[in-house]
Amino acid sequence: MSTTRKIQTPLTEDVIASLHAGDMVLLSGEVYTARDAAHRRLCEALSQGLPLPIDLATSTIFYAAPSPTPPRRVIGSIGPTTSYRMDAFTPALIEHGLRAMIGKGSRSAQVIESIKKNKAVYFGAIGGIAALTAGRVTKIDLVAYEDLGPEAIRKLSILDLPLVVINDSRGNDLYLSEREKWRTLS
């Protein structure tokens, strides 16, 4: 693991190209929450040629749905949901410009191939530390699909969100390489 580096959204081609699997980063700027139901809607809109509520090319998508915001707080608890459920939709979003995703857990071979081909990046956040992660969010705004409740698309302003590069633009996979390194089961 290398030392932690600060990066800012929107993530440029150069920044994405410079990230390697295993790099620890602190991400600041704006990210958009979208998970299962929102992914389905985004892809349906794409297939019908309709405009999307977010600009994929400049957006970082965070697979997350926060708990409700209590009084006098910025946001409820928030953390990544498991990413593989978005795998069916991800290549289409990447084809249409998406370059950065945040979640937890391994991606499919097709997603990793799409990440490599289109020079994108998949970051991992630690699951289940949502009270801690909430402290890195400075603002939350509803963007689209309000009827989806917790699954609506929301814009989060974040400051130094700790992430690790799981799949870099060269097709490396940190989960696989680390597991091999530590595996002792014969």
Binding site: T81, G128, A130
Partner: peptide, 26 residues
């Protein structure tokens, strides 16, 4: 890295208890 992750899990549970907010968003 594993130790850092575990430390964050412990710190997270401490924050949740102290501030009476969910440990996990799920």
């Amino acid at each position: 890295t594993g130790r850092q992750v575990l430390q964050k899990m412990i710190e997270n549970a401490d924050i949740a208890r102290r501030e009476k907010i969910p440990i996990c968003q799920d």
